[in-house]
Simulated scan of single mutants.
Amino acid sequence: MTDMRRLRRATAALATALALLLMAGCGKEGSPPAKGPRTEKLPTYKVATGFRLPSSPTWRRAERRGHLTVGVKEDQPYLGERDPATGRYSGFDIEIARMMSASLGFPPKTIRFQTIASANRETALQSGQIDFYVGTYTINPLRKRLVGFAGPYFMAGQSLLVRTDEDDIHGPADLAGRTVCSVAGSTPLQRIERDYPKARAVAYDTYSVCVDNLLSFQVDAVTTDNTILLGYAAKAPRS
């Protein structure tokens, strides 16, 4: 996680940045696709044949049941989303999970995805509820003592998301007396509480609740990884 001095205001400008990255899949110039790339445009992954990892009890359990159980998020635009109508998961992290499944000898279509709240990730891994977790997850010494990490495969920094009509918050120095929302058990929440004690930190189970409260004027800012906030900003560029 980058130094909090590098926090940036994730508003329409950030939405535009993400829109440029996604322009190849846009319907109208500068507007990101509502649900990400179409299924037929997603990559396919060749399943490793004859792959075995007998030294891993996790892999052996997955082999016996015939599939991997993967923990993910369901409300992070373009990273890990679940369509409530179909139950289908999609996004960057979902594709990483499918790629890993194929490399471990399991057809990606057999993955059982489970939505895991940030505060429950270590418990879900330690109890065997999931075989591995794919998603935004800060690697730090405390967590390394509890679970094993691979990667990182993507680097992100902590940022702020505010409404487009907010003129007084330009960075963390402006948070005194303001209500800042993040997810329970997350590193961004801990950093706000530790480094900016004059801010009023509130926590929920999901970032989508934080964003809903931001749009309804119940909180003044949302803080987490910039990649997550870019997705939310792109979904509501005028808000």
Rank of each mutant, 00 (worst) to 15 (best):
V219Y: 00
L175A: 01
K28W: 14
T206F: 02
S56M: 02
A233G: 08
F113S: 02
D195W: 05
P172E: 06
D93S: 15
Q218N: 15
M100F: 03
T110I: 07
F132P: 03
V47I: 04
G105K: 13
T206Q: 13
Y133P: 12
V147Y: 09
A97D: 10
V180M: 05
Q76I: 08
D83T: 11
D75S: 11
Y153F: 13
G27C: 00
Y196N: 10
R163S: 13
L215C: 09
Q129W: 01
R163N: 08
D174Y: 01
K109F: 06
R38E: 15
Y207T: 13
G87L: 09
R5A: 06
A10V: 13
R145V: 06
M100G: 15
Y204C: 03
P197M: 09
R52M: 03
G80S: 11
V70H: 00
Y89N: 10
K198R: 14
L161T: 05
E81I: 08
G87P: 13
S239Y: 02
A236F: 03
G36R: 05
E40P: 12
D131G: 10
T187D: 12
V222T: 05
V72S: 07
E122K: 12
P237L: 03
R52Q: 10
P237N: 05
G91Y: 00
A233Q: 09
R88F: 00
R238C: 07
T187H: 00
K35M: 06
L104C: 10
G231K: 14
C181D: 03
I111Q: 01
W59L: 15
